[in-house]
């Protein structure tokens, strides 16, 4: 690991000032410390934000509000979250391991970096690590890579499970930076790789994620997360789907679907949603609608299976959501 200067922030303003001057935020460290040890990340300054009072979970009639430093395990075990937003605990518990979830924060989870093996291999070309060096995955081992949103410069998937469900639920982020506060939809946090895969998110320099707002939409209680992977726990998704349904008299009034493991960012399935509104909440409608999900897919040499797995996963997730009483 390269040497760095370490600072503990006692207040948000202190943290933001340090980050605006070039320091990296350190929350649980489960992404950052790992990548620093590999020297994939080489920040010269670190600002530890763990003592900021951002470890809270609040429930109101309209939304669940989660502080950026709440840990994955705390959020998953919270009774209000379990009651009002059951998709979130299910999604969190499907990710990482119990040890990691005890430490990993919600803010850090959204900003975790890709799991493309070449990103971590210092002697492999990788545009995300070294802009302009090329992409080793395009002609390399790419079974785990993206079929949506990829470019000729990068084909890595966004690895967060939580982000998929937050995108489906229409969650927003409160941000604080050197230039003040703002709110953005979680979906707008993530950039497509295009020709600049080293730029992954839309935060401004020094901007801190303060909290996540998850609206208690009418679909929030009838929602499930399905994660398909090579083994049944402690593994990243090959394909995952979050599905949330609002059904009245057997007819779909509103539906939210997002997929993971397939896109260079968490992928909201707008076209599938549109094809479902007004249709009976039944497998036949799910199958017709899910077929639309593959329209813009661009498989690589080893990940063609995802084109079949994606609609199948969506159909199953919708069935699971439909079965929630």
């Amino acid at each position: 690991m390269r040497p760095f200067e370490f600072q503990r922030a006692a207040s948000e303003s202190e943290a933001i000032a340090a980050a605006a001057a070039g320091a990296r935020y350190l929350a649980g460290g489960t992404t950052l410390v790992d990548l620093m040890r590999e020297e994939v990340e080489t920040p010269e300054k670190i600002v530890d934000i763990n003592r900021l009072p951002l470890n809270y979970i609040r429930a109101t009639d309209e939304a669940i509000v989660i502080g950026a430093l709440a840990r994955m395990s705390e959020v998953a075990a919270n009774q209000d979250v379990r009651r009002l937003q059951p998709l979130i605990p299910e999604t969190l518990t499907e990710g990482a391991s119990p040890q990691l979830r005890n430490v990993a924060s919600i803010g850090g989870n959204l900003l975790q970096r890709v799991r493309c093996p070449y990103f971590r291999m210092l002697d492999a070309a990788c545009n995300k690590r070294v802009p302009g060096s090329g992409c080793s995955a395009i002609d390399g081992l790419n079974a785990g890579h993206a079929i949506l949103g990829s470019s000729e410069h990068c084909v890595a998937t966004h690895p967060s499970d939580l982000a998929v469900s937050l995108v489906a639920l229409g969650a927003t982020l409160s941000l604080k930076g050197p230039r003040g506060e703002r709110t953005i939809p979680v979906e707008e946090l993530f950039r497509l790789p295009e020709s600049t895969p080293h730029l992954e998110h839309t935060l401004e320099p020094g901007e801190l994620i303060v909290e996540v707002h998850v609206p208690n939409g009418p679909y929030a209680r009838k929602a499930r997360y399905l994660k398909v992977r090579d083994r049944s726990s402690y593994e990243f998704a090959l394909v995952s789907a979050a599905a949330a349904l609002h059904v009245e008299n057997g007819i779909i009034k509103e539906v939210r679907i997002a997929a993971g493991g397939v896109g260079t960012r968490p992928w909201r399935m707008n076209a599938v949603e549109q094809a479902l509104v007004g249709k009976p909440a039944a497998r036949a409608s799910y199958e017709i609608a899910a077929a639309v999900s593959t329209e813009e897919t661009r498989p690589l040499s080893h990940n063609g299976f995802k084109v079949k797995l994606l609609p199948a996963t969506i159909v199953r997730a919708l069935e699971m959501a439909g079965d929630v009483a």
Binding site: G29, T30, S73
Partner: peptide, 15 residues
């Protein structure tokens, strides 16, 4: 009291 991976925790985070 909570189980964690000691390899990914910096000592200075746990003063």
């Amino acid at each position: 009291g909570q189980r964690v991976n000691a390899c990914l925790a910096l000592a200075v985070m746990h003063d």
